[in-house]
Design a protein around this nucleic acid. Structure first.
Length: 431
RNA sequence: CGGGGUGUAGCUCAGCCUGGUAGAGCGCCAGCUUUGGGAGCUGGAUGCCGGAGGUUCGAAUCCUCUCGCCCCGACCA
């Protein structure tokens, strides 16, 4: 993509409404614009990131055996009456009426819809287990939206729902998702700590929140230092992990026998990016989701639900990866891999080298954002640091004369001068 | 939903107290000079001063109502 024609409205100054780093940076880097309180337009750069995160989530859900579908954003009030949540949910649910005065709502979550779908189409235990998911926009009319996309009213969520014949099966489904979540967050370069949690409005008795550690997190978290060693390993030992103390502040109890001694107790702030629940037959019973069991008798299915805040992850990743100059994208979710900076646009030699690099890398499938603007170097460097692509490839007249270019790693800010050929080889696809 | 704040140019903000033709910096446009870390000079465009009502000869400024947005608390992916 050529920056001269890309829709990327960056801001030099910080918009007054943004209080935390990720919000400020998302506005300044031209990723989002607010349209109403807690409601955002995703601009091309932000949208690219959102899609990359979504794709990682999707791949790990698929790998865990979940099947993707897509449910609507608008739901009928009827099924919510069946589950008993139409009244229980309160003002957070956006209620609307259609032209016939039928009561509708913009879905804040999808347990009812998926349970309805399941009960209408699954009749035998032979069809179990099933885990279904979708990645869909939700609306929760939060009293106080804040922190940009971290707590928007409209947000993109991956929600999965498992159906099993019995508790043992449900527990397996839960554990499968638990592991998938750890992998998912790890792929995005995040440390997400699973915490025993309160089940809140959704209800149930087995539930974990996944918190990304960041200073600006909304929740206080307490965890055993041993977690860090465990998390560094590739294969996560779920049993070992589940024995470790890790709780949010409302559950923290220093007198608990599980609580580690002070020298091993880590106190931090966390951003909740995932939440998983086993809730048994709460919805299947209310909504009559029943299958025939092996003995021919009806069995009310055991359910769980599993959420990941996809749009919130964009903010969370920035909170965990930035400095005073801008964002530092982890490779896996970066909107582009390389920012190509032409220090002297209009200079024939510089232009030629840059065009060659841009074409060569693009043909190899490397995502390059080429700053070909007729602008001063300072502006280009500042914008590129702000946008925070993992690599910057700098081409200027001095280097061109001697066949050298400079590359900079945004994560470490380490610069390196090397020949054009070695730079191209470095960035060739698959390396 | 309680408490606090704030709406003036694309952004950051001054002007309001004490009413009298709408301002600055940055950004934007044109030209020239520039180009190795948010450039210099010259010229230019841009405002329902959030909205409605009122007071007044006259309102960004005073009064009333209203809406938006932000922050602090209780809830959530």
């Amino acid at each position: 993509m050529r920056l001269s024609s890309y829709f990327l409205p960056t801001l030099k100054e910080t918009p007054a409404e943004a209080q935390i780093a990720s919000h400020r940076l998302m506005l300044r880097a031209g990723m989002v614009r607010q349209s109403a309180a807690g409601i955002y337009t995703w601009l091309p750069l932000g949208w690219r990131v959102l899609r990359k995160i979504e794709q990682i989530v999707r791949e790990e859900q698929d790998a865990a055996g979940a099947q993707e579908l897509l449910m609507p954003t608008i739901q009928s009030a009827d099924i919510w009456r069946e589950s008993g949540r139409y009244d229980a949910y309160g003002k957070e649910m956006l209620r609307i009426k259609d032209r016939h005065d039928r009561e509708m709502l913009y879905g804040p979550t999808n347990e009812e819809l998926i349970t309805q779908l399941f009960r209408d189409n699954v009749k035998s235990y032979r069809q179990l287990p099933k885990t279904l998911y979708h990645i869909q926009w939700k609306f929760r009319d939060e009293v106080r939206p804040r922190f940009g996309v971290m707590r928007g009213r409209e947000f993109l969520m991956k929600d999965a729902y498992s159906f099993d014949l019995d508790f043992e099966g449900a527990k397996r489904s839960y554990e499968t998702m638990f592991n998938a979540y750890l992998k998912t967050f790890k792929r995005m370069g995040l440390t997400a700590i699973p915490m025993a949690a309160d089940s809140g409005a959704i209800g149930g008795n087995l539930t974990h929140e996944f918190h990304v550690l960041a200073e600006t997190g909304e929740s206080g978290v307490y965890y055993d230092a041993a977690y860090d060693e465990l998390a560094a390993k590739d294969a996560i030992d779920l049993e070992a992990l589940s024995r470790l103390y890790a709780v949010t502040d409302e559950k923290h109890d220093p007198t608990s026998p599980q609580c580690p001694p002070p020298d091993r107790l880590r106190v931090a702030r966390g951003i909740e990016v995932g939440h998983i629940f086993y809730f048994g037959t709460k919805y299947s019973q209310a909504m009559n989701a029943v299958v025939s069991g092996p003995d021919g008798n009806p069995v009310t299915v055991e359910m769980g639900s599993y959420g990941i805040g996809v749009s919130r992850l964009v903010g969370a990743i920035i909170e965990a990866n930035h400095d005073e100059r801008g964002i530092k994208w982890p490779e896996a979710v970066a909107p582009f891999s390389i920012g190509l900076i032409n220090l002297k646009s209009g200079d024939a030699a510089c232009d030629k080298v840059c065009e060659d690099i841009y074409r060569t890398l693009s043909e190899q499938g490397v995502e390059v954002l080429y700053d070909d603007r007729d602008d001063r170097a300072g502006v280009k460097f500042a914008d590129m640091d702000l946008i925070g692509l993992p690599w910057q490839l700098v081409v200027g007249p001095k280097g061109v004369a001697s066949g050298m270019v400079e590359i900079k790693n945004r994560a470490t800010d380490v610069k390196e001068t090397l020949s054009l050929e070695s730079a191209l080889a470095r960035f060739a696809r698959g390396q």
